[in-house]
Design a protein around this nucleic acid. Sequence first.
DNA 1: GAGTTTGAAACT
DNA 2: CAGTTTCAAACTC
Length: 771
Amino acid sequence: MDLNTPNKNQIPATNPFSQFEDSPVFNYINNLSPIELVKSMHNGQAFNFPSFASPLSVFASPQLSSQSDARSFMRRDQFPEPSKPELLQSKEENDTSIGVFEAAQLTGLSVEHSECSTPANSSKGVITKLPGEHMELAIEEPDTLKYYCASPDDNIIMVPLKAIIEPQMAGDPNDRYCLRKSEKDLCKIGRTGQNEDEAGCDWVALISDVADILTLEPSIDEESAEKQKMVDPGTISFISNVLQAPQDNSEDSETSYYAGSSQQREIGEPGIQPVESGEQNEADQTPSVFSGTLPDKPIVNDAAAKVDIRGKSYQSSSKQHKIRRRCLLFEMGAHKKKLAFESSSSTSSQSDHMGASIEKHATPRTDKGKTLSALPGRGIGLHLNALTATSSGNAVKIETLASGKQEISQPPSPPAHMASGLDPVSKSLALITVETDSVPFDNEDKVMENVPQTSMVVTEEFGISSPKMKRQKFEYLGASSSSCKRCNCKRSKCLKLYCECFAAGLYCIEPCSCLECSNNPAHEDTVLETRRQIESRNPLAFAPKVIRNSDSVSEFGEETNKTPASARHKRGCNCKKSSCLKKYCECFQGGVGCSSYCRCEGCKNTFGCKNGVEENDLKWGESKIHENISNLNFLDIIEKGEDHPDLLVPSKDSRSPVHPQIPTSGQLSGSSLCDVGPSTKMRPIQRFRTNFFYHQPKYEKHLQVIPEDETPEILNRNCLPTSGVKSVSPNSKRVSPPHHGSGPSTTWRRGRKLILRSVSPSPSLNPPCEQ
DNA sequence: GAGTTTGAAACT
DNA sequence: CAGTTTCAAACTC
């Protein structure tokens, strides 16, 4: 394809054009034009740069592109107009014009683009006109380009220009009209374009990208468009307009629209996407939308290609990229399912549901976006849940939003294949998800489950019909276990923490057996409000129940102990009869040992027992504390009356050579989570650190979606004596964090303060916790 | 699958 | 904040 070599086209243009400059025809044209003729050289540049440079600028500024696109769309509509075709036709007959325009490489370029991009439709739009449109070319091309690239200047110029030209059209011969217009354009373009050499370079790159996209082959227009989008918001608009034949105006318009709103998409906000946006739109939508409207053509290979392309092109925002990628892949999956659904409509409820969910996801996505925005730092779980549901293919309930409250009953139970093993699509999705760091924990869990090999923590089922089966998988999962819940609530409407789904910040989904469930997108408002209320009562309510120290540690590249002992229950248990040996015990259920936070009686937790506290640790701690207390930046914590008893008992962990240096070194052991066993209670400081780092991205991502506002709280809890004080005494009842002090707000404030003062610039390395 | 046990969450 | 109630999961049969 020639697309990747736009300059080639550009280069030739100059000469040919100059040749015609001297021709009689050209002179004639000049005479016709009241406007001062621009030198061919200049013109050449104008064509070359404006057309290409602009696009670049456009890329830089999506907004502009959007405007441009909009215009472009309009314009395409105009093309079909009877008057213009005639005009073109007449022009075509004119040798002069032909020569002139042949000189203009732009034309050729445009043609090529069109051809490449949309074989079927290429005849339309640009191509159709270009051949004959010498003058028209000058006119149309620049405009078109402006639309796509639309540097601000271009836009400004073009508007007035048109205004001027249009009137002339009526009375003047086509030639004249075209000529003038072209001249004007050239002048303007030249002006604006000259400064855009660099842009031109970028343009080349862009073209290359385009070429790559096109070379991906069997891609459809939609697919190419999708790719384009992935490449760059601004690029999208350009490519879609240039490459895509106006086969479908509506589609174009949408494309343009999206290009324009690329910023929003970049941000990850749902934006204002039309529900039935179509594959392109959905392509960019976040994971939740794995729309089924995807082109039917997506092929596995292509998909991979797309991914690669994206990955290469947009490293800058790796996260976004990942998200996109994931989305894409999910889309792929969705697409596949859709195909299956379409192909074998007879079968499966699953396919059916998938199709339904796919079609309706667009809306849910928006809702999710709202959720996020509405609940800053909160509702994350819900948001993710949507993802999870989607990916799992179980997201039937989520459809309710899209369907407008219509609750689509889920299939009686997940298809056998789902339970036994994921369908290929799901697996692929899972794998993909695993690849991406941005994958929500819940999603990840599911992924893990499906792909045990890769999992660090296996949790929840992907599509297990039986609640029991589901739960059985929760065994050792700690926080992760809390991530993907399936409930069986009957009276709480799944709006209380009794509901595991709700507690995990997730919407209930198909596998749930709940009654009168309100924990779904259809009741988003209610859910959010309830969440708020609960959080106001207990800021940590939605925090992961199990805090895994090892994860945070590993995040920093340090090999960590991933045993349950390296984690602890955030609040500790209060078991009386189960001896912490049954799943009644949250610690046990979470696969972690009991800690000083626990108030359990007769603890026999096999993962670790708070009773194992070592006296030596205390002694050691005392000596150390004096040594280092002064170094603590979080002294203020203590000063505030938050003197955490634990703080007085530094960890004695052998692996934390310098652990006393809380603020600076990452050497404190991850003890906080290592409450289990000998060192359990011994590391208040460490605990603080650990917990603090617990909030670090990776850990959070993996284990639980924690509302932003909870982070401080967590810190607070960990840092503040609250529980710590009493925890020291096994018998004493620990004060729950939320209730501590003056209440949530106070706690919150303190938490924030702690963050500010105690945060260590460098990642803390929490040594593995050994029991 | 029904009934019981258990402990967290919610309520007072 | 302690005590009680409610709830749903875990467990048993």
